[in-house]
Structures are given as structure tokens and as C-alpha cells.
Design a protein around this nucleic acid. Structure first.
Length: 427
RNA sequence: GGAGAGAUGGCUGAGUGGCCGAAAGCACCGGUCUUGAAAACCGGCAGGGAUGUAAGUCUCUCGUGAGUUCGAAUCUCACUCUCUCCGCCA
């Protein structure tokens, strides 16, 4: 959420930024801007009435103590209440309306973010590693996984629905090894503290990280409860400090956590239907930082590097992209995507998304810190990124490390976690 | 699922209708003392909002929301959450 005062005072700057954002809610913006002066005027009226009533109440108290007659004053106060009848409610309603609109206005972008409409205008920052040359006909992960007997799509569809998968044998072990490998790396080398948060979150938490109110249709709702399956651990980990004022010495706080993630994928019906690129349930190791506003851009680089480290250790070729304005998510000020090379698709595909939200989520979630030098509490900056999406990492390993006979070699760095060096057909 | 207890500032905790945005302690910040530190002593220290160049003034907030009252942390109602006991259960 943006600061209303800031928005009113920087209307032109914001509108200029917004024009290259996708689907920006012009009506909400205009509503907020046009109602602000009305809101202020109402506040002043209501508070003037209240001040009068408070003054009278004080005088009545004094009179009663000294045994005087306060009936005239009491009558006056009742009269004032009648005069302000409904004003209160009107103000509350207006505030609520403004807040609702404000919640659906996207974050201000960082000046680095290139203008552009969609993914094709994202900016390539760097390419690491070289795609392997194969001297045989390669398979994609779907065929590899099915042939090896480590991924079962059909039975998962039968027990749940399409977009679910069951990993079997060494496939399941590989997934688990990847999770452990990533968590160990981030906790031991990058200074993150591991968390195992709830897999469901309430609507307040989801509003805090800005999945709600705008993206409700992407979530799985639990019937009869104010609970949703989390679409990412970002939700629960970022809301860990909701409505808290931290000490400055608690910053930065770095957390990592593995969770399954659940997404309805409404609106992506025809997309990535083959294999496990786009599932209703997938595993992810998430990185989250709470940090001092002065250092969040440095933190963004570090967080992204931490995610890249996973790909480097697994020796998977990848690219870092800077998302353009049209492709940057609703709450983010700046986002890097990491894209891993998938031989089966002859393309780089997203495997991590690392964003700085600045104070956008912190304002929604009420996460502040007390500055050391004194003064008012300030909003922290929140950042998060995938470190990495585990299922897609498994896809990348299968495709990049496949052999002519259909077997798959396990990357060196991972072997001590899997306990095996190859996957051969286990059917 | 049944019964009971509770929710007050960063933390502990007092406060049952006006003198309470709130005692006291801890933590924290500044100062005195000290070669330095600790201790001791002195002072400061909740958050949001309106207005103002500022100092300040006003307003709201004692889990949340309604209500009673001239006046609510305190009384009433609803809700949420936490804890204890019983039942059930991995």
C-alpha cells in the first residue's frame, strides 16, 4: 500500500510510473486523489465537535465534584451530539472506501526498471554457464520422469486432479535432497534462519503481502474458515512480524523456509499443461528479508545472489533478467527473475523471482522498527525471492543431466544429499 | 465438542465511571560521576490522525466492533484470540 499523503503530494510522479504498469486501476487512483480533501475536511469537522464535547465533560466533572449544577452543560453536550449526528459514520465510511481503493493500487517502481509491456521487454542482466551440447536426441523431463518411473502424472490426476503429480522412489528422494541442500546452503552460508511456517494463512496476512484483495481467484480457499492455502511461504514468513515494532538491532532479519505452495492457476488453462512446470501444488524454498530502508537495494542484490548460488552449485546454466514495468508484480518495486536453461524446451524458464517491496508490504502489514537515533517508528523494507522453486529445479536437473540411455546423473554438489549418483529406470 | 479464566505501552504489571494515554518495575536513550566500564543518581521514553514553517494545539486508540453515559481501560452486548481442565485425537 502506498502512503496516502505521499500519493497526494506526488501525483504526477506516480502517474508517470503507473502508465507502464499492466492493468493499473485508474478509477481507484482517481477516487483516492479526489476524495482526500473531502476526507480532511470531515476530520476537522468531527474533531471540532469532539473537542467541544470533551471540554464540557471536563467541566461537568469539576462541577459535580464541587457540588455545582451541571444540567445546562449536559444539555448542551447532548445538543452537540445531535449536530454531529452521522458525521462520524460518514467519515468512517469514506476512510474505509479510500483504504479499499488504496489496497488495489500497485507499488511505485524503482527508477532502474525499464519501461515495457510484457515479458519480451525484460532486460537481460547476465548469462551464466553454457547450455550443454547433446550428441543424441534429448527428451523432456516429462518423458524422462515417466520412463524412469520417478514421476507419475496419471495416478496423481486420478487421486486429485490435473496439475498434480506424485514423485516416486528416487524422484521423491531427489526432491527432498534438493530442499535440504537449499536450506543448508542458505542457513550455513548466507546467514538465513530456517522457519517452518503454517501452510494456511488468514485474509489479513494475505492482505499484508498483497495477494488480497486483488488476486483472490489465484488462491485455494478453505471452506468455512477464514483461511487459504498459501501460494508461497512469502505470505506466512513476511507476516511473522505483522503489527510489530522491531528494534533497529533486529534488522536485517533473514529467514528461509521450505513449504509446499498452492495455486489455483485460474486463467492459465492452456499454459504449460505438460509436465510439472505449472502445478497446483509445488515445493519452494523461500528467502525473506526484513531490512532497514537505507540498505534494501543492497539486500536485494545479496538475496538474488543467494538464489543464484544454488544454480551455480548445481551447475545449471541460467540468466538473470530485470523485469520491465509491465511484467513487474503488483507489490514489487523491482524484480529480478532467474531463468534456468531447459534443454527440453530449448528455452530459459523462470525458476526464481527476487523482489524488493520497499515499504509497500510493511505498510499493509504494519511492520515497523524504532530508529536508533530516536523519533517515530518507520516501516521496514521487505524482500523475498525463491531460493529456489524445487520442482522446476528437479525439471532442470533431469533435462540438463540426462544421458543417452535415458538415465540421469546427479550433480556433484547434490550427491551427498541424494546418496546416489545416478537415476536409472526403476520400473 | 463441554466448563472456566483472561487480553492494558517494547516487556512485566497496577488500575471497577471524571483528577487516566494510564502507577511501578524492566528494557532503551541522554546526562552526572569514572582513566574506561559497571553501580548509583538525574532526566527522557506508546501509536495513528488533523492542523501548523515550527514550537505547539486538537483528536482517536487499554484485543476488535457496537452500545449505555454529559463523561468509559473501567458498565452492557457481539466477535476474535490466548490459557487451564474434561472429552476426542496424530
Amino acid at each position: 500500500m502506498l502512503d496516502l499523503r505521499w500519493l497526494v503530494e506526488n501525483e504526477a510522479t506516480y502517474k508517470n510510473c503507473l502508465k507502464t504498469r499492466n492493468n493499473f486501476p485508474k478509477d481507484s487512483l482517481e477516487f483516492v486523489l479526489s476524495k482526500d480533501s473531502e476526507r480532511r475536511k470531515l476530520i476537522q469537522e468531527v474533531e471540532a465537535f469532539r473537542a467541544q464535547k470533551n471540554q464540557i465533560a471536563k467541566e461537568v466533572g469539576q462541577l459535580k465534584r464541587t457540588g455545582g449544577d451541571a444540567s445546562a452543560l449536559m444539555e448542551k453536550s447532548i445538543q452537540i451530539s445531535k449536530n454531529m449526528d452521522g458525521l462520524d459514520a460518514k467519515l468512517n465510511e469514506l476512510n474505509q472506501e479510500i483504504e479499499n481503493h488504496l489496497l488495489s493500487i500497485p507499488n511505485m517502481l524503482h527508477s532502474d526498471v525499464p519501461e515495457g509491456k510484457g515479458a519480451e521487454e525484460n532486460k537481460l542482466i547476465k548469462t551464466i554457464g553454457t547450455p550443454r551440447k547433446f550428441d543424441f536426441d534429448i527428451k523432456d523431463h516429462h518423458d524422462l520422469g515417466v520412463n524412469l518411473g520417478i514421476i507419475d502424472f496419471d495416478r496423481a490426476s486420478r487421486m486429485a486432479s490435473t496439475r498434480f503429480t506424485t514423485l516416486v522412489g528416487k524422484g521423491a528422494k531427489l526432491e527432498r535432497a534438493l530442499i535440504q541442500f537449499m536450506l543448508d546452503l542458505h542457513t550455513e552460508k548466507h546467514g538465513y534462519t530456517e522457519m517452518l511456517p503454517p501452510l494456511m494463512a488468514n485474509s489479513k496476512a494475505l492482505t499484508g503481502t498483497s495477494q488480497l484483495p486483488k488476486f483472490k481467484e489465484d488462491l485455494f480457499k478453505i471452506d468455512g474458515f477464514d483461511l487459504f492455502l498459501i501460494p508461497t511461504a512469502e505470505v506466512t514468513i513476511t507476516n511473522y512480524f505483522r503489527e510489530e515494532i522491531l528494534g533497529e538491532d533486529q534488522l536485517p532479519s533473514l529467514f528461509t523456509g521450505y513449504t509446499p505452495c498452492f495455486r489455483s492457476e485460474a486463467g492459465s488453462y492452456g499454459k504449460d499443461t505438460r509436465g510439472l512446470i505449472r502445478q497446483h501444488q509445488f515445493d519452494k524454498v523461500e528467502l525473506v528479508q526484513f531490512c532497514h530502508p537505507d540498505y534494501s537495494w543492497q539486500a536485494h542484490e545479496l538475496l538474488t545472489s543467494a538464489a543464484e548460488k544454488v544454480l551455480e552449485l548445481l551447475e545449471l546454466p541460467y540468466q538473470r533478467m530485470l523485469l520491465c514495468s509491465g511484467d513487474t508484480g503488483f507489490g514489487a518495486a523491482k524484480t529480478y527473475d532467474l531463468e534456468v536453461w531447459l534443454p527440453g524446451q530449448s528455452a530459459y524458464r523462470e525458476i526464481s523471482s527476487c523482489s524488493n517491496f520497499c515499504d509497500f508490504q510493511a505498510r499493509r502489514a504494519g511492520i515497523r522498527f524504532k530508529p536508533k537515533e530516536g523519533g517515530k517508528p518507520r516501516f521496514v523494507h521487505t524482500l523475498n525471492g525463491s531460493g529456489l522453486a524445487v520442482g522446476r529445479t528437479l525439471v532442470a536437473i533431469l533435462e540438463n543431466y540426462q544421458e543417452k540411455d535415458g538415465s540421469v546423473t546427479i550433480p556433484k554438489a547434490l550427491q551427498k544429499y541424494t546418496g546416489f549418483e545416478r537415476i536409472e529406470s526403476q520400473k
